[in-house]
Design a protein around this nucleic acid. Sequence first.
DNA 1: CAGGATCCGGTTAGATACTG
DNA 2: CAGTATCTAACCGGATCCTG
Lengths: 116, 116
Amino acid sequence: MDKKSLSEDCLRNLRGIKDTQDLLSGKWKTSIIGALYHNGKFRFMELKRHIDGIAPKVLSKELKDLEMNRLITRKVRDTMPITVEYELTPQGKSLNKVINAMGEWGVRYRELMMKK
Amino acid sequence: MDKKSLSEDCLRNLRGIKDTQDLLSGKWKTSIIGALYHNGKFRFMELKRHIDGIAPKVLSKELKDLEMNRLITRKVRDTMPITVEYELTPQGKSLNKVINAMGEWGVRYRELMMKK
DNA sequence: CAGGATCCGGTTAGATACTG
DNA sequence: CAGTATCTAACCGGATCCTG
């Protein structure tokens, strides 16, 4: 194999990695998706409570990004006062392999680092 | 189940997700790991060539981050001129599930978006 | 070759206060 | 409740040039 160039397949895969990384960019998106995945739905403040330390402005912006990329939906229910529900789309749910892999790896990594 | 709190397991998992996300933060780390995973080893300039558009300073910094977190190793061989080889640690290799999941999802996501 | 030094602009994210 | 407004500091990443 030529050391200087990777195969077409690899390149496509690398581009996939980068695409995914870009969609999940920032400090919070994977946490948001993870939380929604575990719980199904969340309202704005619930989400905020579960994601430790996030500012409302930041959460709001992240949610908009995710919505734009069709990974979550935003549903306004005209209760009084209004409530808003965020939920994963099928597209967003299909990220579970990625998110789960991250969760499992992260847990194991932390354990390993503890031992040292 | 209480709507207001997630189980211990979920919380641990969410923390794992966040840990992983933090370790892979920035625009480039997953691409670097992906490239190393496919190829085994890379020298600095090889890596730079394969990662489209990255500046040397940035690549250098990303590599240091990864090394600090024990995901890659840096080996200097005293050839003339010196050459440096970067390689994944077992720890770094164990990220393959995450990286692969990202790659696969990204490829599928792109196809789906193309259709619309 | 493998990076470091420097300069710089844009984005990100945090705190706090405020609104419909 | 579900956000927006404002201000700021930090960081990120790019370009270019330089060095052992």
